[in-house]
Design a protein around this nucleic acid. Sequence first.
DNA 1: TAGACATTTATACAATCATCTAAATATTGT
DNA 2: ACAATATTTAGATGATTGTATAAATGTCTA
Lengths: 92, 92
Amino acid sequence: MDDSLFRALADPTRRKILELLTEKDRTAGEIAEQFPIAFASVSHHLGVLKAADLVATEREGQHIRYRLNTTVFQEVVRYFMTRFGGEGEKHA
Amino acid sequence: MDDSLFRALADPTRRKILELLTEKDRTAGEIAEQFPIAFASVSHHLGVLKAADLVATEREGQHIRYRLNTTVFQEVVRYFMTRFGGEGEKHA
DNA sequence: TAGACATTTATACAATCATCTAAATATTGT
DNA sequence: ACAATATTTAGATGATTGTATAAATGTCTA
């Protein structure tokens, strides 16, 4: 379980980005316009998420489309369940 | 899902502390001696974990005993499963 | 190839953070 | 009450981080 993963999750803007990507894949611009900060700042956040392997990208002409890497989230869930797991998730 | 929770999890020393507490409850001193940093620094980390409600404390004479707050971990697991969940946890 | 659009990279800066040492607080035993 | 032990709090410092603006890169279309 890489350190970059938890650091990436520590920022609320990045978590919001991940939630946006839950709904559907989006381009960098579509993501950026959801936030009151500069495009370049969002791009930086996207870079952090990508470095943590939480998202993947694909170029689509001028645009770059981002999508969740769900595999990594499964690893996160597994991390918490195995280490601190307890019994809170049985029914899901 | 509080921001302090994710920020608390972002530091590797704090995650290690949590893993130590998985094995058994421990006093601040027992925890601190596991790390190469100053006791005061560990105490600071413990404060962060407590502020995030990831651990709870109980005074025992001169010592202060720390224990995991497993309820919060269940919330973390639920957070990931509901938002990004997918199917990675079915069999656990 | 030039210009427009989409995105990232470079650079700078203020804020936050992890750590340290020293001082303060709390408890116990003499 | 005093000294010893356990732990936290205060204050300082260097490193990291989130954000901004400006410049660079990549892609499309005329």
